[in-house]
Amino acid sequence: MMRRVSQQRLGVAVSLTAALAFVLLAVAAVADDRDSGGPAAAGAGAPAPAAAKARSANVRIVFTVLPSSKKATVQWGKKRLGVIGPQAPLIVQRPRDSGPLDVVVRAEGCLPVQTRAYTFEDSKVAVKVTPIEQKNTLHGYREEVPAGDGGVPASNPDGGSFFSR
């Protein structure tokens, strides 16, 4: 790859004038200067469009809940980060690139939701909460085996052959 591009550059360099050579010199000098920033620090974790700008030390995470009429708490391990009020988001600031926040969002009458916020850029985390009585609408819900029933192998729709193909 490196040489392929370099060979392409060869053609350009040969055909262009001294003015182009001057531009090349200037550009290369700038590039060399930027490299001095250190590869790891230069680009890690930055969103591409914003990379040219100076990045703030912190990121802003906006937590909201759906439906927005609900009130919910946001817990990060031992720490309660705050409350999402009806129509009022919870805004949290965290050091940039300090690792993800695994939080639990709890709303009254609803199942708790474990979700994650990232710290590599500003973000919005809109969490849908589900009333307990509607848990059968969630992926992963399954009808329980009745108590006392040992359970049986399921029958296949085509006649119940275990080795149905």
């Binding site: 009808e143 329980e144 359970g151 049986v152 192998p153 399921a154 029958s155 296949n156 149905s164």
Partner: peptide, 25 residues
Amino acid sequence: DAKKPIAGYVATPWTKYPPGLAVPP
């Protein structure tokens, strides 16, 4: 014996399923 892959789900003998639960497609 099988010369082509078996299509669809196969219930496993070690899983307890509710009685009458059909194997879904």
